[in-house]
Design a protein around this nucleic acid. Structure first.
Lengths: 194, 194
DNA sequence: CACTCTATACAATAAAAACTGTATGGATTT
DNA sequence: AAATCCATACAGTTTTTATTGTATAGAGTG
């Protein structure tokens, strides 16, 4: 019975750990990525050592192919890295061992991409408008002038918004956010600035 | 030819506006919601007046049912509201007319939900651990003690992380973020604090 | 250079999410 | 209370995304 009850307790502990992994996986929706990303993140994190695709496949019960796909995606998101291990041909993957840092990476990677796509379009549209305005020089139709003004205003608002996001991303990326929302609130703020 | 070229210019302007809508829709992925949410957001925003489900269905070419589903989701996300219009039986929906505010609403709603789910689990797991520790009082097996310690540490890290997110959400929700990342960077910061 | 081991490309399947059409119930008007 | 108008529940369909299995190319080893 001693042995048996020990087994039961160990199972309970494992179960608790799994629940944490599951929750992390679930929360990945909020970042707009597949829950498998979160699952692998949790597994590697809790493993506290780099892991191979085979190990991950074993642990998740999923195919190695899928593991490969997801780890790739995670590297693109800047939340995982390949780690060289001497004497092995396999690739070992590691993750940031700090949840907050992982959050910041995901946040900045995602929004940087958005900002970049938007800037391109904004520039292009501004050129278009300039062109239209020029072509209308001589006798501007009232309707067109009106619509153009409207579009210009919309575009301006839009540009202001994405400029704000750009600066917001900087605020996170630079770690400045941690001065204002510290990880350990009791701490003296890490370095009084100014 | 005058009339005709005017038509072409107007079309170009409309096209530009549509491209903005499309981009907004696309960017919604980053929040982990369907792009239709973004599309409706853009349409209502650019319309600059509340709209009905029928109008939205007309504008998007989608079914009214879908419009209903999406507007509901948007209300749950706190980025849309019903507006009463006298003399009409239909419901009119309006959106926040400020992109930054919309970003903040989405961010806080999403992460608040995550924090709430996690707090529940964290509490539950802490109780479990306490229980296990008590039941082991007499002769603690080394393996169990070890594993328990490990789990406790993980849980602590995890709790710290979600507490950080909670405070981060506050930082956004309260508008404090705008003091540090202002919408108009040239402005004197809105209210020098301390 | 033949052999082995590894990641991944590619095509196929399974699962999930987005979306639609019809039916219904609950208001509001007549 | 009958008629009308509206949102949405529900069940079904389509589209998209996640996942798998097989095949292959490339890198390391003997």
């Amino acid at each position: 019975m001693n042995k048996k009850s020990e087994q039961i307790v160990l199972e309970k502990l494992q179960q608790a750990e799994d629940q944490i992994s599951d929750r992390i996986a679930d929360n990945m929706d909020t970042f707009g990525v597949s829950s498998t990303v979160g699952r692998l993140l949790g597994i590697i994190y809790l493993n506290r050592a780099p892991m191979t695709l085979d190990e991950l496949a074993e642990k998740t019960g999923m195919s190695k192919t899928r593991m490969s796909q997801v780890m790739r995606q995670m590297m693109a998101l800047n939340i995982a890295d390949k780690t060289f291990v001497k004497g092995s041909r396999k690739e070992y993957y590691s993750v940031e061992n700090n949840y907050v840092q992982t959050f910041i990476s995901l946040f900045t990677t995602n929004w940087n991409e958005v900002v970049s796509k938007n800037s391109q379009l904004a520039r292009r549209l501004q050129e278009n408008i300039a062109q239209i305005e020029q072509s209308q020089n001589e006798r501007p139709s009232k309707k067109i002038v009106e619509k153009t003004q409207e579009l210009k205003q919309e575009l301006d608002e839009w540009i202001i918004y994405y400029d704000w996001i750009r600066r917001l991303v900087d605020f996170f990326e630079s770690g400045e956010i941690l001065n204002h929302v510290p990880v350990y609130p009791n701490d003296e703020k890490s370095g009084p600035k100014e």
